[in-house]
């Protein structure tokens, strides 16, 4: 991986850390015990993927920043995660739909990244693709059951779709920091993943009897560090321990 790829790796790691943190907020609050284990399970997978990506980015950068320094030691504008990852959880329908959108995208992303000419990225992808495959499956099943469930669950799922639709376009906007790596066959071309993602989402929505929203303006800015108002609050909680007790261990 060329040094220019460091920022792209950090962006991808940020997606996983921030979404993993969001999902972990459900721990102890899920609607049923089984889901109270399933969601933190997924959150831990995401944070594990973030750790591998941060460590690799830190090594490539060679500036002495380890995974903790990258995860906890940056200001808000230095985080490059997609906006959808930082949005508040909302209700269970909104959380599951977001997780389905993301997992469907990441499954496709990791499948491509497994063929990367960069051996480390390919190895991270080989492990992550199995995890993403399960996340997608689990969340898709919930989207189907809530969409094709009771009047209330269908209404909540429709509201979640309307709320999240503007944030899915950012998946497919090419990361300027990754352009060189895409051309070199190291990094997946995210724009090229859109048709497969669209087909996957539409197939699940059809089973869920949900009508996908008409195409909407894509919110963007996460990859340039321009975040929603939710991000500062999230970071305050995420970084508190490391800011208060730097390099703490227990």
């Amino acid at each position: 991986m060329p040094a220019a790829g460091v920022a792209a790796l950090i962006g991808l790691a940020d997606d996983h850390l921030i979404l993993g943190h969001r999902l972990s907020e459900w721990c102890g609050h899920a609607p049923m015990l089984e889901e109270d284990l399933a969601m933190p399970n997924i959150a831990l997978d995401l944070i594990g993927q973030a750790r591998a990506l941060y460590s690799y980015a830190g090594d490539l950068e060679g500036a002495g920043r380890d995974e903790d320094a990258l995860a906890f030691g940056r200001m808000e504008r230095a985080y490059r995660n997609l906006l959808i990852c930082e949005l508040p959880n909302g209700d269970f329908a909104q959380t599951m739909l977001r997780q389905f959108y993301f997992a469907s995208f990441m499954q496709l992303f990791w499948q491509e990244a497994e063929r990367s000419s960069d051996a480390t990225l390919a190895a991270i992808a080989a492990k992550a693709v199995k995890e993403a495959q399960y996340h997608r499956r689990h969340c898709a099943e919930w989207v189907i059951r809530l969409g094709d469930g009771t009047d209330e669950s269908a209404r909540r799922m429709a509201e979640a779709m309307a709320l999240l639709a503007p944030y899915t376009g950012e998946f497919f906007i090419a990361d300027p920091e990754a352009c060189g790596a895409v051309e070199a066959g190291i990094w997946p071309d995210t724009q090229a993943l859109q048709p497969a993602w669209q087909a996957d989402v539409e197939q699940v929505f059809a089973a869920a009897k949900l009508v996908p929203p008409a195409s909407v303006y894509a919110q963007k800015g996460g990859r340039s560090g321009l975040h929603t108002e939710a991000m500062g609050h999230l970071l305050a909680q995420l970084q508190f321990m490391q800011r208060s007790f730097p390099d703490m261990t227990w």
Partner: peptide, 20 residues
């Protein structure tokens, strides 16, 4: 044992609860 709405969800919950 566990609670789940149907067979597929029960299988997934079993994976999450008992094979971690």
């Amino acid at each position: 044992s566990l609670h789940a709405a149907d067979a597929e969800m029960a299988l997934q919950a079993a994976r999450d609860v008992y094979t971690r």
